[in-house]
Nucleic acid binder design. Sequence first.
DNA 1: TCATGGTAACTTACCCAAAGGTCATATCAG
DNA 2: CTGATATGACCTTTGGGTAAGTTACCATGA
Lengths: 204, 204
Amino acid sequence: MVRPNAGTKGVPRLDRETQILDIASEQFGTHGFAATSVATVADKAGISKPLIYNYFGSKEGLYEACLDRGGALLADEIERIARGEAVGIERGMATLAGMFTLLEPQPYLWRLFFDPTAPSTGAIADSINGYAERIGKLADEGVTELMRLAGNDDPLDISAMTAVWLGIVDSLMNWWMEHPEESAEQMMQRCMRLLTALFGGDSE
Amino acid sequence: MVRPNAGTKGVPRLDRETQILDIASEQFGTHGFAATSVATVADKAGISKPLIYNYFGSKEGLYEACLDRGGALLADEIERIARGEAVGIERGMATLAGMFTLLEPQPYLWRLFFDPTAPSTGAIADSINGYAERIGKLADEGVTELMRLAGNDDPLDISAMTAVWLGIVDSLMNWWMEHPEESAEQMMQRCMRLLTALFGGDSE
DNA sequence: TCATGGTAACTTACCCAAAGGTCATATCAG
DNA sequence: CTGATATGACCTTTGGGTAAGTTACCATGA
């Protein structure tokens, strides 16, 4: 039997894995875990499905690999900003600026960690929770500080405010994905204008 | 052949449809369109799958029926508030209060219209867009007014701010779903406190 | 009063396509 | 010849959708 291309491409495993992860991250991030099929990822990479299973074991394994690569990136950046000296709203804006810069080439990465169609139990959930908690914890920290400055330390208030903050970031990322022509710099200036509109011009 | 229960329940169609819609709305709203199976809905209703197909035609038909019932409710309420005299932040808070009251028994209804796993083309998308636009248009209107008061009329700024506003409502609804013990009244007071924390205490 | 027949409510058992996952095998460099 | 890269063909499960039949009830007419 003739199999014209089997084994002939000779792409080193690491290169291939990187390529697959790039494509898979984009698919998962744009369409969600449930709506992404392994066959589609294979197609876009120009390879066959079994190769992906050979390298990543399962669809969940593939997703996990995407999470590990993207999560480290995100969490490291947010942690770096958290170590800065900004507090309150300023810290929020600094975090946003960092996110925009980091995610300029791939805003969909953010959605990997807030995908409602991802499995909510098992190894994947653990991995997601690991990063989401790492991100969420820093958000919580920032929000707690902001609320303390305002004299509010009700745990439920803080919890709700954190959810709102993450929701804001989420909707900005979604909006950005629908306006890909915007640069990170433009997004940041836009956010500053929105803030100004809300606070009436003296947000420093 | 013996079929012990066929046709014996004698529940009138309208009653049965209402019951099915209740269950389906909850499932769709909680788990999303993609992750909800018709068989599960049938199970929870204590009936068989074909009865649902008999009454609603297809999974999409069922979803559409949920949308029609819930959408009218939501859009009417938001429109009612829009006719009020509140503007700017106040209008936002009034809308929130209305949403909380309306959705007290079923916060998941909100998510029906912002479900990323729902089909993005076809009859369903039209129905979704109809209501989402009706809701979104009012949001846009309110935001436009708010921004105008602040001297900003950039269309993209307004578009982004609207997205953020809807994202805020969305995250509050999600938070509420995770804290079902909260009453609408409590949610509203919580939101007022969050607003106060942000604005430093003089937000009417 | 009681057969008759129409209709609404309801079910079992099945079909089929999509998608996750596997197996045996092919190519080729060293 | 071995091991890394790679594939076509297949298996299996899940879930949307359907065909065909069953039960209960009610209206009608003798």
